[in-house]
Design a protein around this nucleic acid. Structure first.
Lengths: 193, 193
DNA sequence: GCTGAACATGTAGAAGGTGACATGTCTAGG
DNA sequence: CCTAGACATGTCACCTTCTACATGTTCAGC
């Protein structure tokens, strides 16, 4: 199969190939850690999903077990086929736009609540997004402080920028929406549009 | 169960309760249609998911079959318990931030590609987001043209605004990112930051 | 009277994702 | 020596979601 056979829902596989391609050979344990830290804000997976997927990818020839280290540690390396698959997905696959978002669902249903309740929801949303924003900006600071020689800090940089912009946009939306629901309410910071 | 028992992953249920609460009694068929049109940009579900879920919700007492019309049509009505559950989710549940997005994953992995390929991906992204933006603005135009007496056009209005803002933010990001990758490339519209 | 389109509801199987369970290894510190 | 904690891999059951299959009704137009 390898090329020419995209069905949808192989994003986990692509994410793993991407990490192996960019950061070099790694174990399932290493990859799980990277999922928790760097890639977490665009895709999530736990070890219980990652280990079986690595086994399938090895069976499909996209990766190979380069070495077995201490404690049963298996080091996977991306193969030529794996690189082809990754590059093919990145350049040929147009991602489906529609995203499932519980936050957007709350926004959708907001008119069901009466104004005081709706404003309370918006305040909670604002707090959550501010926390997320701080987290992302923390990640960016870490990247910025890494030695310039390392390439690794570049992977994910554009996505981080996108995440930060989306968070800022959501904050502005919450502010404006609160003002639309109740023009007299004090949003706490910033001024209404 | 009803209240006090949120586990995660009951968004479909909430979306259905929201539509029944705001737009009044409806059949599974009606609700499937509303999923296709209005709510589609924040949550998606087909009839094969909706019918079984309605049956479970009726078993849980959140909705009842008010009447059976022609062609086996079943009209569901939200119960008091259903309204409580909906309101409880909206006011008490803080949605988990991390969203899975194939588009963001492509952004994350962009540094793997060399500049010409990365720019091509950004162009494709731009086209897709522009199409989505047009679609959302079309929806907003429909809402705006509806008679003021109808309340229905309000449901989803805030989410539509949020979606449009996110799309615009993504376009700006794609433009700036292309400029960062290759300052000499002509982005086709707008000027670099 | 026939036929196709919209109406209307379901089931089944496969794949993806989550949380809990299960097992074993190595190493630093007491 | 022993033990707690990080290292390391795996399975299982359950739930959600997707695609396809399956069935039957009403009505408008020919």
């Amino acid at each position: 199969m390898s090329i020419l056979s995209y069905d949808g829902g192989m994003s986990l596989r692509i994410a793993l190939l991407g990490l192996l391609s960019f950061s070099g050979p790694a174990s399932g344990y290493d990859l799980t850690k990277k999922f928790e830290t760097s890639i977490n804000h665009v895709w999530q997976a736990g070890h219980s999903q990652i280990y079986p997927e690595l086994a399938k990818m090895a069976a499909d020839g996209l990766i190979t077990v380069e070495a077995e280290g201490a404690r049963g540690r298996k080091i996977y390396t991306i193969t030529r086929e794996g690189r082809d698959e990754l590059r093919h997905w990145l350049t040929e696959h147009t991602p489906p736009g529609p995203v499932r978002s519980e936050g957007a669902l709350q926004a959708f249903l907001l008119p069901i609540l009466d104004p005081p309740e709706a404003l309370a929801v918006l305040r909670r949303t604002t707090e959550a997004v501010e926390a997320k924003l701080e987290h992302l900006q923390g990640l960016r600071a870490v990247k910025g402080s890494q030695a310039a020689g390392r390439e690794e800090h570049k992977l994910g940089g554009y996505a981080l920028d996108l995440g930060i912009r989306h968070a800022l946009t959501t904050l502005a939306w919450a502010r404006d929406t609160a003002a639309a629901i109740d023009p007299d309410a004090d949003p706490g910071q910033g001024e209404p549009a």
